[in-house]
């Protein structure tokens, strides 16, 4: 299962953090810093997986943003990598050519999208059209 999802930029600013385990705030900050240091120092050609504490972090870089998911060691690395990509595609569609600022200004929407795709540390919806449709409905309710 996914333990947490982080979205950080190159400078280490967190744009989104979602925790499916109970972690206290101090620990959260520590993890954010450590994960950031771990993944930003890696060469782009390297694997997208790195062991971190008891779990492993699956990460992928899109422009200046790092999307990382911390999952169990025994989980299918490739599938989660694909899930990250799906998430990014949905963001891209939703915001129309998404950029970091979109995520900054609409952070609450990003959380909403995340909640439509992942729940309790598992993938909830895998179909891009279904998610987008649902998001439009939710938008209308605002």
């Amino acid at each position: 299962m996914i333990h947490y999802i982080l979205l950080q930029n190159r400078a280490g600013k967190t744009r989104l953090s979602k925790w499916y385990d109970a972690v206290d705030d101090e620990e959260k900050e520590k993890i954010k810093v450590e994960v950031h240091r771990l993944i930003t120092t890696r060469d782009p050609k390297f694997t997208n997986f790195i062991e971190f504490r008891k779990h492993k972090v699956i990460y992928r870089r899109y422009a200046g943003l790092f999307f990382s998911m911390c999952v169990d060691i025994s989980d299918n690395d490739l599938a989660y990598l694909e899930a990250i990509h799906l998430f990014v595609e949905v963001l891209d569609h939703f915001f129309g050519n998404v950029c970091e600022l979109d995520l900054v200004f609409n952070f609450h929407k990003v959380y909403m999208i995340l909640d439509e795709m992942f729940l309790a540390g598992e993938i909830q919806e895998t179909s891009k059209p279904v998610i987008l449709q649902r998001l439009q409905l939710l938008e209308k309710l605002e």
Binding site: A79, E82, A83, I123, T126, K128, P129
Partner: peptide, 16 residues
């Protein structure tokens, strides 16, 4: 099927 296609594979998440 457009709805579930990911990179030419039909819903890989479900398959996995």
């Amino acid at each position: 099927a457009l709805e579930h296609d990911v990179g030419g594979v039909s819903d890989p998440f479900l398959q996995v």
